[in-house]
Design a protein around this nucleic acid. Structure first.
Length: 112
DNA sequence: GGTGTGACAACAA
DNA sequence: TTTGTTGCCACAC
């Protein structure tokens, strides 16, 4: 089912700037509980042409999904900080920046 | 239509 | 905290 990708992308687009979400969280909201890995894959497949805020997606523990020194990790860090998210030592304080989805917000942006 | 593969998660040590 | 192990299952070949 390739439409899962669309659901995932939509969900990612719903994450507000200045906040982050975990892969599992996105999977859940996309109606794909337990498919966290699929989220990662779909982000990887996503055409750069559609500006997807992939950088707002982190691991469940708040770490960036990329290796510490990697290009991507640095780029992600930069983008996040642009939005006011503090990234230290390749990780974010979820306690402060994790997106707490608002029911209305969900229903508005994604209607399944 | 069988196999290998993840930008993961949860748990253990 | 970091590293390793295991479970997971849709997706690309």
């Amino acid at each position: 089912m390739t439409d899962n990708y669309h659901k995932i992308w939509q969900t990612v687009l719903a994450v507000p700037a200045g906040k982050v979400a975990s892969y599992g969280q996105v999977a859940d909201l996309a109606g794909l509980p337990g498919r966290a890995r699929l989220v990662g894959k779909s982000l990887g497949m996503a055409p750069t042409s559609m500006q997807l805020p992939w950088y707002r997606i982190l691991r469940s523990n708040g770490q960036l999904a990329f290796a510490k020194g990697s290009e991507s990790a640095e780029r992600q860090k930069g983008l996040l900080q642009t939005e006011g998210v503090v990234v230290m030592n390749n990780r974010v304080r979820l306690k402060e920046f994790q997106w707490q989805p608002d029911l209305g917000e969900i229903l508005f942006k994604l209607d399944f």
